[in-house]
Design a protein around this nucleic acid. Sequence first.
DNA 1: TTGTAGGCGTTATCAT
DNA 2: ATGATAACGCCTACAA
Lengths: 363, 363
Amino acid sequence: MNLSNGAARALTKGAIVVAGIKDVAREAGVSVSTVSYVISGKRSISAKTTDRVMAAVEKLGYIPDANARKMRGMRSQVIALSAPIRGDINQAKYNAYFLHTAWAARNAGYDVLLLTGQDAVNDICRVTEGNLVDGVVLLDVEENDERAAASGRLPKPCVAIGYPSIHKRCACIDIDFAAAGKKAVDYLFDKGHRKIVFLRNNESDYERESGYVVIFRRSMLSQAKVRGVEVIESPRYEADCFDAKRFVRDTFAGVDCPTAIINQANASVLNLVLQELAVAGLSIPEDVSVLSCGTYLEGELMSRPVTEMPVMPEKLCSRAMRLLISAIEENAEIMDVVDLEAPVLKERGSIADIGRGDQMSSL
Amino acid sequence: MNLSNGAARALTKGAIVVAGIKDVAREAGVSVSTVSYVISGKRSISAKTTDRVMAAVEKLGYIPDANARKMRGMRSQVIALSAPIRGDINQAKYNAYFLHTAWAARNAGYDVLLLTGQDAVNDICRVTEGNLVDGVVLLDVEENDERAAASGRLPKPCVAIGYPSIHKRCACIDIDFAAAGKKAVDYLFDKGHRKIVFLRNNESDYERESGYVVIFRRSMLSQAKVRGVEVIESPRYEADCFDAKRFVRDTFAGVDCPTAIINQANASVLNLVLQELAVAGLSIPEDVSVLSCGTYLEGELMSRPVTEMPVMPEKLCSRAMRLLISAIEENAEIMDVVDLEAPVLKERGSIADIGRGDQMSSL
DNA sequence: TTGTAGGCGTTATCAT
DNA sequence: ATGATAACGCCTACAA
């Protein structure tokens, strides 16, 4: 008999009583190990004992202490999600990734710890080395991402949603934006377009070399050169400062104006442009074709459907999570995995074939 | 001398070595308690010893195990953020709250654990009783919120951003939407408006009695009755299915059409309406006045500025966090706190005074 | 089938 | 000023 705490061991936290495994054991009239085994199911226990124990668990509302459990080398069942807030806090694009990551994690029995601090590398080290989390997902990965570069030192597996140039021991999941840039040009080329305007993303994303934004643009421009397609770039703008009226006026005023728009801006900006095109009397796709890339317009309220090469957060998140879980639970070696998904083009009738259909392009 | 593990105690996790406090102690040639005190600073240690210990900490990259720490009754420095995903996963409105909560938490030295599972009450119990978190923030609170109703049983403090009818032992932080509904009507009344169209939020929010949406509408309608203001309600619609063209046509076709819009829909819907108003040749505020409520348009890309009574997530989140932290760190009794902020009206020139200025209303 | 006991890494309470 | 050691709550090898 344990003298020091054989008596009522129920702890009071504030006004609320939290039962421990010993309380359950006493209530059920068995030993603590029996309770533990009933719960973990790692040993066969007689039905009668099991019932008594479960009844006690129910009665006391027993929930094992997550920390004591982890001290025994068990997993914490928590995934860290790194999404550093850089500059303005209005990062609407994160949202889908947050939710889908959390969703995928929960389905695998994990919770998500949100790391949004500026000092991301530090935070990640802290929670992995402190055994707070079992693995890490990197969001909003830049071309030269210091988190990905530091992932080599982490004691837990790590997956990036994105494709940084340095990715020591950190798996990468993304859409193949290089292929996407090429495909966008080829697709429009095949439909006869020879002069295209590129509607840029807001400038801050280029400045910090946000991975996909840069890769797509670079590849698109290079393929345009290959095909002999002329590309005009929209003027640069800061987030929430885009002048759609001016853009439309300047771009589509002259006689030899572009026949298509490749959009890399977000849904709001694109919506404003569509609106201004309508005001200017230009109809889609008769007067102007529109191809949106790196967006996901299906969930957005657009003033008209737009053909796009979407990035689907749900898919990326669930694949990233599957990979991470396999590393956590089956010790799978994922460090060298680079999984770039081929881009998909969703036709929604915003692109016209302007009929120089004599050429063919190979994908 | 401890025989069982006095030797090299550095644990290997995967290929990475994690040092424990014993390793640091051995490296520095001191006892574990000395290391602990150097780190916590709870006892004065000679400068020489301190230096040796810190050097060892640096060298080994020692980071205390968060779990062992918590076993000793320390805080986990983690806040749970409950934002159950109901129905579709495209809950863009959550985003600002996620980021601002995380931001406020980090400033106070806490991380955020995201709980988005369907079974919110269960998740909250699990993480609070399991000592995974020090406190809970409730998001997207409904009129009859089961989480708020269950908060009485939680062993950790809890703050709701919202104002549910039942809130046992759970503090509430929100904007006073009842006052906001009243103020919206009074403001337009004072400017001479006597017939108003209410642009509803999407239907799912009313169905599940999302707190603020319901409270605002109810109070607005009741005050309209008091003032003798006629209110037409926009047709119901599901998320992402709003027909703006039709709404504008049906509402502003006749001779005796409304002179003002009170908007409760999100920025996308409102943008579509503004667009259609322009197409219909109606200008703001000359032909139609617009007052948006429960939105936060400042961060959005609107086709024109709109006067609004904004809900500012940053403010709510930081107040909620302050309150929660005071409960956690100073054992403040916050259970009975209900903190409803007076609504603010941001003029942005979308409302006309149509000049029956003979009446005055008291706020 | 069930009970006993040791240990996970840390902090706090002793003693030195 | 520093060291040894007993908890914290749980899991599991070993004993019965």
